[in-house]
């Protein structure tokens, strides 16, 4: 049933874009982390489905990493961190939500416009997946640009990586090396971020990156 296969794959990839858009209007950090977990679950489902229809068992590993590491472990740790710092009630003063949503929709339209014509020759499953993956990547970037808080920037970066994972698994037969490396790089990236958050906490008692900028004036 190739038709159904493609439909389900596209539905899952589309859901990932929707969850990305949901991230944009979360103002509380705890809510944002819940959406991040949801994002990783949808990614895991999508990757798992790709593993099934491409009959490439190694993709199940990628799905499992997405589920356990990005869907459960990271959100839990980040949640503990923000509670310990007492910033879980903090409401972010981002760029206005309406404007961000409009920008997000524009980015989805842009990526469809860019990717669909050029991927016409690629097999149909990679075709839509690639366009949707690019939307997720761009929305992740948007999130990193519009948020001032270090935790939200990490969340934005992780959603961006999820988008890249989606693209990598949609490309049939992409070597295993790369998938492991992607997962591994996220692991390293997270450790690095963890260290940084702790250091920022040591120094400033806040995770607002705005507080880091205060010294820039004197240094130009």
């Amino acid at each position: 049933m190739p038709g159904l296969h493609y439909d389900i794959a596209h539905m899952l990839a589309g859901s990932l874009v929707l969850v990305s858009l949901m991230m944009l209007y979360q103002v509380r950090l705890t809510a944002l982390l819940h959406v991040l977990a949801l994002h990783a679950f949808v990614l895991a489902a999508s990757v798992g489905w790709q593993a099934y229809i491409q009959q490439s068992p190694h993709l199940y590993i990628t799905a499992a990493i997405a589920l356990v590491f990005k869907g459960i472990l990271v959100p839990v740790v980040l949640r503990r961190m923000i509670f310990r710092m007492g910033v879980h009630r903090e409401i972010e003063t981002a760029v206005s939500i309406g404007l961000t949503m409009l920008a997000g929709i524009a980015l989805v339209a842009l990526s469809l416009q860019v990717m669909l014509p050029v991927t016409a020759a690629v097999d149909p499953i990679a075709r839509e997946d690639l366009a949707l993956a690019l939307s997720v990547v761009l929305i992740g970037l948007l999130m990193m640009v519009t948020r001032r808080n270090a935790v939200s920037q990490v969340v934005g970066f992780m959603s961006l990586e999820n988008g890249i994972n989606l693209a990598a698994t949609g490309a049939r037969g992409m070597p295993l090396v790369v998938e492991i490396s992607v997962a591994f790089s996220i692991l390293i990236a997270f450790i690095v971020i963890g260290i940084f958050l702790f250091r920022i906490r040591e120094r400033f008692d806040t995770v607002d990156v705005g507080a880091l900028d205060q010294f820039r004036g004197g240094r130009s």
Binding site: T119, V122, L130, V137, F157, L160, I164, A171, M174, V178
Partner: peptide, 15 residues
């Protein structure tokens, strides 16, 4: 961000 974009480009080259 830069390295993520580069990976996306790498995937496209593979495709």
């Amino acid at each position: 961000v830069g390295i993520a974009l580069a990976l996306f480009g790498t995937i496209l080259v593979y495709l």
